[in-house]
Design a protein around this nucleic acid. Sequence first.
DNA 1: TTTTAATAGCGATTTTTTTCTTTATTCATA
DNA 2: TATGAATAAAGAAAAAAATCGCTATTAAAA
Lengths: 216, 216
Amino acid sequence: MSERPLMVIPQPTLKRLVVYHQWLKQLQERGRDVVSCTVLARDFKLDATQIRKDLEIAGIAGTPRVGYRIDAVIASIESLLGWTNVNDAFLAGVGNLGAALLGYERFTRQGVNIIAAFDLDPAKIGTKIHGKPVFSLTKMAPLAQRMKIKIGILTVPAPAAQTVADLMIAGGIEAIWNFAPTALQVPEPIVVESVSLASSFAVLLNQLQHQRHKTT
Amino acid sequence: MSERPLMVIPQPTLKRLVVYHQWLKQLQERGRDVVSCTVLARDFKLDATQIRKDLEIAGIAGTPRVGYRIDAVIASIESLLGWTNVNDAFLAGVGNLGAALLGYERFTRQGVNIIAAFDLDPAKIGTKIHGKPVFSLTKMAPLAQRMKIKIGILTVPAPAAQTVADLMIAGGIEAIWNFAPTALQVPEPIVVESVSLASSFAVLLNQLQHQRHKTT
DNA sequence: TTTTAATAGCGATTTTTTTCTTTATTCATA
DNA sequence: TATGAATAAAGAAAAAAATCGCTATTAAAA
Ligand SMILES: NC(=O)c1ccc[n+]([C@@H]2O[C@H](COP(=O)([O-])OP(=O)(O)OC[C@H]3O[C@@H](n4cnc5c(N)ncnc54)[C@H](O)[C@@H]3O)[C@@H](O)[C@H]2O)c1
Ligand SMILES: NC(=O)c1ccc[n+]([C@@H]2O[C@H](COP(=O)([O-])OP(=O)(O)OC[C@H]3O[C@@H](n4cnc5c(N)ncnc54)[C@H](O)[C@@H]3O)[C@@H](O)[C@H]2O)c1
């Protein structure tokens, strides 16, 4: 498909590029056409040079005294992240969080399309949640294999996470987006990206404590 | 309360400590009593020295040839993160994600207790979701002020996020946990911690692409 | 009791990431 | 057409984070 040199993008840069993208989309809707690092730095409370380096790493050029064309930046980031072609994914565990992810339409514009969900609960199996069909967990591995699904989203309770991850891998899934607070043990080529909301909240609390110390 | 020197903990360390904590809880439930950095390093696919440094920063000591007492590590991390006293919080935007967060009981063991939620939707106002009362958004600021709530959780659609954040600040809220994909503009002392699931997924995709390059 | 192996501890080194400094480019204005 | 101001670009420096190498300590084995 799209031939990219596949250079290594620093992970902090990668994450920030996604955040810039979201914001630039909003600026665009408000009629903005170009944006400077100075402005972005103020909006995000970051260093302007850092943003410039990030865009440079993404291969984006600006013009002095003007800034960057927003549409060009958006297009570059989308291409860099591979959002131009969407990846099909399975989701396991249609609970509170799983259902929320199923209903989040923005994901399809961010490279992921959840095409089916799997659960153990008989009350959920056979239904559709946010338009996505829910199947029995036993169907997951065979279906993944048949449909060549490569991405699995794991939103089951922590004690079940390892078992369900093993099923995903058995079905040929290569990357697991893990929301369960556990350390998944997976063989070498499998990619795991874990989301830890608790970590994020810990950062919030920590900063709040520091802020209070400063002012008192 | 608990008098801590409030040293600066590197943010990567802080996040990892939370992850260690979750895992150690599980090891404890399985009857484990001590754990070594070597084992943790294998479980998390991290460098053993890094884990040792993290624990050192958290002020945790181990014994050679044995490792660390799991209960001591858990206690130290909880105390360090301030999970021993729970912080009350308000949540704005009881949609898919907001409702999922409302129903997540583990949060109370991680320093945050959502005591009420707020929304614009008349169908939701006056109801209880996962046992938490939902009030009209207009009540948020006055109630926050009266109840001295300092933490706000923002799960409204992106276009509404800035407005609702302003309301939170008007109510005396000092820290905002933001799930909306937007760049909140807040005055100096206000702390904002944004969660970007899209960034996390971008990391997953990126690693998957690299993994594929390696093997092919 | 001695030896061995596993592990924590600690300082040094390397790598990565961020920030600073300087230069070059472009647009607006006189 | 010059001048000034804002900005990107590029390289250097600094800061932060991760990793390495070595030493000390401890428990188990010999
Ligand atoms: N809800 C949140 O806000 C939140 C936040 C952070 C992390 N998480 C994590 O996300 C995961 C899901 O949380 P939740 O609140 O949605 O839980 P939940 O209890 O609402 O949902 C769990 C779902 O998984 C299903 N399930 C259980 N065992 C299964 C199995 N073996 N195979 C397939 N499905 C199975 C259940 O039937 C249920 O539908 C948990 O690991 C939780 O720790 C949740
Ligand atoms: N659902 C997800 O998986 C997911 C993932 C990542 C980020 N997010 C972000 O989280 C936020 C919420 O997502 P969601 O899927 O729950 O959306 P949703 O549409 O399901 O819920 C939004 C809720 O906010 C309420 N609301 C709207 N305007 C409001 C206002 N001004 N004041 C108070 N409440 C208001 C709505 O009535 C609704 O209940 C969005 O910003 C979304 O981008 C969601």
